[in-house]
Amino acid sequence: MNIAVVNYEAGNIRSVQRALQAVAGPQSSVEVTSNPQKIRDAYAVVFPGQGAAGQCMNNLRQTRLAETVRERISSGRPFMGVCVGLQLLFDHLEEDDTTGLEVLAGEVRRFPDRPGLKVPQIGWNSVQQIKPSPLWEGVPDNSYFYFVHSYYADPAPEIFDSVVGLTNYGFDFASAFTKDNWVATQFHPEKSGKWGLQLYANFLKFAAGV
C-alpha cells in the first residue's frame, strides 16, 4: 500500500506520517511528498496542515500543488484532509482573507471572542457522531480527539449532508466530514491517541473500498 502525505511546508507533517505508518504496517510505504505524480498515483492521499492559512495557500499555489489536490479529489480516488488541510478545501477563509481551494462550499470563520472560551481551542474535545461514516467504525460515540485551532469550517447548506461529526465549543461546529471518495477532520487523529489511530486505520480501510 502506497500512501502519500502532501508536503507543502505546513507544520508537523512527520507526525501524520508516523501515525499512518503505525496503522498501515511495515509493508506499506507512507511518503511525505510534493511530487504531483506521486500524489496522483497514491493508493490514499492525506492532506494535513497547520499554521497560517494565507501562507499555506501561497505555498500550494506557488508549487502548483493546489491543482494537484483539486484533481485528486475530483478524480474520485481516496483523499483525507486534516485540520488546516480540511479548512483549505473551502471557498474562503477569514484568516488572512484567503481564497481556498474552492472544493467545498462554505466559509472558514474565526471563533468569536467569548468570556471563558479561549482562542485557539487547544485540547481534547468530544465528537458527536451525527451520521454513520466509515470513519466511526469501532470508535465510540462522543470519543475525545485533540484539537488545535482558532478557525472552524462553516459549511454551506448544500454540503450539510457531508457533515458526520459535531463538536461543541460554545456552539456546535462541523468537526468531521465524509462524502463519496473523501473524508476530513478538524481534529488531529495523529495526536488523538488510540481513537485517532483507529480513525486513520478506518480511512485506509475506506480507501480500499473506493
Partner: peptide
C-alpha cells in the same frame, strides 16, 4: 465540550 488537560 473541551476538557481540562492533565500534563505530566
Amino acid at each position: 465540550m473541551l476538557t481540562k488537560r492533565i500534563i505530566p
